[in-house]
Design a binder for these strands. Sequence first.
DNA 1: CATCATCGGCTAACACTGTTAGTCGAACAG
DNA 2: CTGTTCGACTAACAGTGTTAGCCGATGATG
Lengths: 218, 218
Amino acid sequence: MKSQVKRVPNARGQGERLRQEILGAATRILEETGREDALSLRGIAREVGISAPSAYRHFKNKADLVTTVLDATYRALAVAMSEAGESAAAAGADPWGRVRATVTAYRRFAIDKPRRYRLMFSLEYEPDRPPATDHHPIGTMLQAWTDTTDAYLAEVAPSRRSEAQDLGIHLWTALHGQLVLWHTLPSPAAGNETILIELEESLLRRLLPAPQAPSPTE
Amino acid sequence: MKSQVKRVPNARGQGERLRQEILGAATRILEETGREDALSLRGIAREVGISAPSAYRHFKNKADLVTTVLDATYRALAVAMSEAGESAAAAGADPWGRVRATVTAYRRFAIDKPRRYRLMFSLEYEPDRPPATDHHPIGTMLQAWTDTTDAYLAEVAPSRRSEAQDLGIHLWTALHGQLVLWHTLPSPAAGNETILIELEESLLRRLLPAPQAPSPTE
DNA sequence: CATCATCGGCTAACACTGTTAGTCGAACAG
DNA sequence: CTGTTCGACTAACAGTGTTAGCCGATGATG
């Protein structure tokens, strides 16, 4: 775990490898501490076995490094959601079950990587870089949710399919808020994930048009 | 706006005044920048006209200062909510109108003080101080919301009053999530508060048991 | 083969930061 | 008149992000 004292420079084309090592160390530190200012370039350098300014070959500055980590986290969450939905569908789950699978994947991610999840929504996203270059990764997340609700409505209540976007926003924002609350609240709730699940069910029943019968699969 | 060069020390009993000045400067800087690490004790000292270590007479460290600012912000938001609800009641508003007044006060606060609002939920709350000493101020917020939903249910659907806590959580977390999303999203939505209001109405209609008729007062 | 640019990385240094230790004048209490 | 406390200050330490400049090895090019 301590700093490996020596390090052979990477071969000519393999400079990219160091970038990955830096990213990995940064991700781990951010997940452990949860605070951006607890992440120091010198600390990363110590772990990876390089000197601090060497990181600037691969990242324009510290904010760029953090942004890159969070970008990857956004993408990981999005694919976890869609994979959960798809595999539930492949297993023959009903629409309600697919939504629940997606919701569960989202909750799992937020609970298993709590600090990174919190950071995703608490950091100003790269305030210097040209803002119109590509859309904020949070847009991807929104898309994932409206996809989920749209697929549900398409099967359960096709006539109300126009509400898919609103429902997607409601579902996502409410879940996010629940998780923030749950993370921030002091001890009694902190270890008790079941109250989160119950809140989820209560929310889904209120928001989504009722299916044939809420399948008791969880 | 620049540093006032001289400053007469406060009289014997009036050391508290400096504390308020520090708090004021810190609040302003946090609201302007929105990032904790953009707030420097030396910067505050420069504005107030003191030297940096003098702040340690009034705050144990930087985290304590930030916590104090956010504590005050929590309280301000809570009273804004309850005041809005009470004055709506005093004006003879129906239950639905009172809920809307509370919601509007919450939105106003989050939009008018966006950086501070964001900081409230993005900071680990004083991780060093004995955690059981007093409850997290977020609990106050939760209480305010369950009070609101309980008052609504008591009048509109007394039989479902046991759902008040769940509904309060749903309402609050969903609103918070909407605001986070709205703040984070890129430009087109950013200036457009009406879509937030519409989202709110859509959410309230879905979550709250219907009243006699949604009053068009807004 | 010799040259030269580029890659991968390092050292030194600057301007800051939070925080601690120790000091100093003025005001009040005994 | 003496001591203590209050309200502040200066000096200093360790650590930070970031920039400028250097250096050895590698690869392409003449």
